[in-house]
Design a protein around this nucleic acid. Structure first.
Lengths: 225, 225
DNA sequence: AAACATGTGGAGGATGTATTCCGCTTAGAT
DNA sequence: ATCTAAGCGGAATACATCCTCCACATGTTT
């Protein structure tokens, strides 16, 4: 495994600029979502727009480069979950991990539920995560803890749902996603005897939720046209 | 109850135009979300932009006027649910109803989880729905069917989650939301003896979900800045 | 049918964003 | 120290969208 991809080898100063652009974009995507103006990224990184475009001809190139590491971390989380002797526990931990990653990074929340067919490295990590997830799900079913009719796409569905909750609440009621996840994990579990109701994280205060409803309309994040 | 609000009374042709604008906006919001350009609405309605702005000075005014009827229908759904002798059944039916409304109308999906403080009539309907919902929840708890730690804000959370799933899947896997809802309803239920696992709607096919991930980036829908 | 308040449409200015062009600068090789 | 390919920044261009203005049209009333 090589640390840096086999791209043409830049002059030292250019490489520094490239790194600074990536670091800046990482921060701005996390905070403001995938739609930050290219110009803002360039300004914050103290480079001209041309430099940004020279290195990353399209926004997707930039997104892919920025999230490659996070996508690897995500796939690693699946791998780690597979080492848990209790596969159900590992599965739940993985879900918490990935949902938390979404909550921490608005951009990643959306990038996770999109695909960038030309970003080879990134899509390779997505595949790795997917295949690990299939195995993890299979084991949790065999262990009798995960309901039999669960499918891997249910995880994708969860990530989409979580992205929706986070997009609406991250300013006013930022922990709401934990409650959604707790509900869904309970629903994913195979029926237990005796029946259990898992404890839930505290709900958002009604006033906090009202403030979430008040959220301004503005540059939006990651949705189909 | 008056059919038309007490607005100044327009000339006949102007009233016709107004209705045509509303019908057009209703269709376009449903199809493309709340961000359709005002100019497109005007063109489709065969009026000039000035006419559109004259009648609806801000986009929110247009949104509010378009969704007032749907918001009433939504509040009515709560009222209807309250007449169900089985409060839990009524509650579940209500959730299905409102989620289906979201699935049918991208604009409404987002309008539901926003608030427009200046749109008196619309917010009044929202309040009516909220108060009815509080009562419905209370009854379902008393009946022992709804878990005790459920709060009304959980419904809002569900609507936000559902909006996220719909935004991501409505082109490629448009029934995914039914599965999310089934999972959540199961999680909302009070623990039963013997334990049950409710049957789920069919999951989206993996290929459909992949197509959902492929969704284009473009004008987005209803999220915080 | 005349008068006029009401209503109309499209041009156009203001903004925000994407993307390219090009003359200047500089790292790094010799 | 010199040279040059690589890199640079910001102005310029292109476009989408918002929103206003105003000369012209039309329904309504008398």
């Amino acid at each position: 495994m090589t640390t840096s991809a086999d791209r043409p080898a830049l002059r030292a100063d250019a490489e520094r600029n490239r790194e600074r652009i990536l670091a800046t974009a990482r921060r701005m995507f996390a905070e403001h979502g995938l739609d930050v103006p290219m110009e803002d990224v360039a300004r914050q990184a103290s480079v001209g727009v041309a430099t940004l475009y020279r290195r990353f001809p399209t926004r997707e190139d930039l997104i892919a480069a920025v999230f490659e590491a996070k996508m690897t971390a995500h796939a690693d989380a699946v791998t780690t979950a597979l080492t848990d002797p209790d596969s159900w526990h590992g599965f739940c931990r993985y879900l918490e991990h990935v949902c938390a990653m979404q909550a921490e990074d608005r951009g990643f929340a959306n990038a996770l539920t999109m695909t960038f067919p030309t970003a080879r490295a990134l899509e390779a990590e997505r595949d790795r995560a997917y295949h690990g997830l299939v195995e993890l799900i299979s084991r949790a079913k065999v262990a009798g803890k995960l309901r039999r009719d669960f499918v891997p796409e249910d995880v994708v569905m969860l990530l989409m749902a979580n992205a929706g909750v986070i997009a609406a609440t991250d300013q006013a009621a930022p922990c709401t996603w934990k409650r959604l996840l707790a509900y869904l994990i309970q629903a994913f579990a195979a029926p237990a005897t005796p029946p259990v109701t898992v404890p839930l994280p505290d709900p958002p205060a009604p006033t906090a939720m009202y403030r979430a409803l008040l959220r301004l309309r503005g540059p939006r994040t990651g949705t189909a046209r």
